[in-house]
Simulated scan of single mutants.
Amino acid sequence: MLIVTNRNINSSNFKNGVGDHKAFGDSVNSKGPNEVRLAKAEKINGKWKVELIKEPSRITENNIPSRKEFSKIRDKLTETGKNCVFFVHGFNQSFEKNLEKSLALEKEHKVEVIVFSWPSNPGGFKTKEYRHAKRTAKASVGALDSTLEKLGSYLKEPFNREALETCNIKFTLMTYSLGNYLFQNYIIDSVYENETSIFDNVILCQADVDNKGHASWVNLIETGKKVYITINENDWVLKWSDANFQKDRLGRTAKNLNSDNAIYFDFTNGNGVGKTHGIFYKKTNNVVKDFFTKVLNGERGEDIKGMSYDSRSNSYRF
């Protein structure tokens, strides 16, 4: 997987440009939250190998080799027939946790993942740390914007028959939990210029953002196909967020689902769902798995069997 991160680098962890699961830390880059580094990561015999592509590098510079690395990913996707997911994780994620969750995403849904890894783990699962993570999320908007802008320029194809016939790779964005707070601030920021239109689907998974007023910014999201929002009213992480900070998290609320731009999927009553927060990779039931496999591969979630549209709630339900 390809890693784009504004985390601080643990230089002592690297030898000849290669490190492990401790390659990046839990603070922003020493040169600021908009400074990013690129790395490749793979798990070999149970151990992570993290290889720097260049150190240091600004994704806004024209001379970084990210186009070359992205081209390698596209070649790999063409050979394997896989699609690609750009993944923005949530709160309390160390670099290692982020790698493991991304690997689970790859394995469960047979996709290749590009990880946007931001420092969301300031020291624990407490009020002070959560607020710190939200401030870091806001500060990371510039890094996300530059990343998506650069990826968009790489995805542009020459307008000819050969290029169009071979370009069948689907590209999906999934923002998870507090990663949606970062994404929300990006969408409402003046830097947003419809860069998300490069994605076939955009998935706001178990969003740790306010349900109230969410339509005002969700309606601004540009995408090639659909915007999906997932809900579990019993989500234990979002319940904690509700109880300690604010009320009615978008990913935990089955009311006021009023964005004209989004399709809502409420998994609350699904077998095995229970209090699950990590609903895209935890074992629940085949319907939930089928939904994520479809939408992460750029297909229509509405086509899955086992859920139907409820006009009263404006959502698909069991």
Results as ranks from 00 to 15, higher is better:
M307I: 13
Y186G: 01
F86R: 05
L220K: 15
L296M: 14
N285Q: 10
S12A: 15
Q246I: 13
P56C: 01
G123H: 03
Y130K: 00
C167F: 12
W217Q: 02
F125T: 01
D235P: 03
F87M: 06
C84I: 14
S57H: 03
K126G: 01
T268D: 04
E112P: 05
R131V: 00
V202Q: 05
I203C: 13
K283A: 10
V18D: 05
L144H: 02
K247M: 12
V115W: 00
G152L: 03
D210I: 06
W217K: 08
P33C: 07
L77G: 06
P158S: 11
E299D: 14
F14S: 08
W240V: 00
V28W: 02
S12K: 13
G224Q: 09
E51H: 08
F292R: 05
S313N: 10
N121S: 01
K101E: 08
I3N: 02
N269Q: 04
T175G: 04
A133M: 04
G224H: 05
I221F: 07
E233L: 03
N201C: 14
V36S: 02
A137N: 04
V111W: 02
P122A: 03
A41V: 15
S30F: 06
G152M: 04
D248H: 14
K294H: 13
E79T: 13
V115M: 13
F24N: 04
P158H: 12
S177T: 01
E129D: 09
K97T: 07
M1H: 07
N286T: 15
E61Q: 10
T293E: 11
V141F: 07
F24V: 06
E149K: 12
V115Q: 05
R74G: 06
N29W: 01
R67C: 08
L103H: 14
G274I: 04
L296C: 08
K255R: 11
L220C: 11
N234A: 11
T5I: 05
L105E: 03
E233F: 01
E106R: 15
V288E: 06
F91Y: 14
G25N: 04
T276P: 02
T196V: 07
K226C: 06
R7D: 03
T127F: 00
T284L: 07
D26P: 00
V88D: 00
G81T: 13
K255G: 03
K282H: 12
N256A: 06
S12D: 15
L296G: 02
N194M: 07
I44F: 14
I229K: 06
H89E: 01
F125R: 02
V191L: 09
T166H: 06
D260K: 10
N10W: 05
E195F: 05
S12L: 14
D266P: 00
K282R: 12
N16R: 13
I53D: 09
I279V: 14
E108Y: 15
S177V: 02
E222T: 14
V18H: 04
S177D: 04
A139K: 08
K170Y: 11
E233P: 01
F183P: 00
N62V: 03
W118D: 00
F24H: 09
R317N: 09
K247C: 09
P119Q: 03
I198C: 03
E79K: 15
I229V: 15
N256R: 07
G19A: 13
K54N: 09
F292H: 12
V209I: 14
E157N: 12
T166M: 06
S117P: 01
N180Y: 04
